[in-house]
Amino acid sequence: MTSLMGHPSGQTVGYSFSQPTAAPVKEHSFYPYTDNGGSTLGITGSDFAILAGDTRSTSGYSINSRMVPKVFKIGGDDETGKGAHILLSVVGFAADGNALKERLDAVVKMYKYQHGKSMSVTACAQRLSTILYGKRFFPYYVHVILAGLDEEGKGALYSYDPVGSYEREECRAAGAASSLIMPFLDNQVKFKNQYVPGSGEGHALQPKKAEPLPRETVEQLVRDAFTSAVERHIEVGDNLQMMIITRDGIEEIFHPLKKD
């Protein structure tokens, strides 16, 4: 049995094609994730912590919206987030990010309801890790950063991978432009590759020692990091959202970024 088109031998002429002509059955599979772009960053000081993120939401080359905040207050009274004492930034798959934020918020609220006191940042950081690891085999596709003030009133910052391994740090960039911002922070916050002038030759050169930076300096670093990231990354832009937590509460600042 040969096909009319394939090998016209004339022996058996079919009405049609003996080989299935339809393309092989397409293997559709549902992919439950998407990347909504954007970038976040956090820096701590001696008595404050800053979490920042751009407000652009993308899918592919499209801009979904220019105003989708990525930094949230956790454990606040209502929608306004009044009374919150923890900050969370989420970047990656926005739907997972929202689900995670709401779960953590509920956990912190239940903690307060059950224990009659606010959850410490240290405890919240550990709990967040557990939540992320709980979905180890179907992860929340997000890079999250948690910020607050520790028991001594010092700025505390915890960064996570999508499945919950975490670490307390002084500064961290996450998301689309993290590879652009992080080296900048290493240099400007941790003073990597900075040396004390005239302290020696070659290996004898003394590295400059990192000290916690004042708030004004850190705010300016955040703005610089983002204005630069916007120039080089298409998924970052529109607005910069900054949340600053101090012992007096949480302050939120918006700052325009390039919209191209």
Binding site: T34, S57, M67, V68, A94, A95
Partner: peptide, 10 residues
């Protein structure tokens, strides 16, 4: 996917 966003025009 459960992704949400809001804007003056969509």
């Amino acid at each position: 996917l459960g992704t949400t966003f809001s804007s003056p025009h969509l």
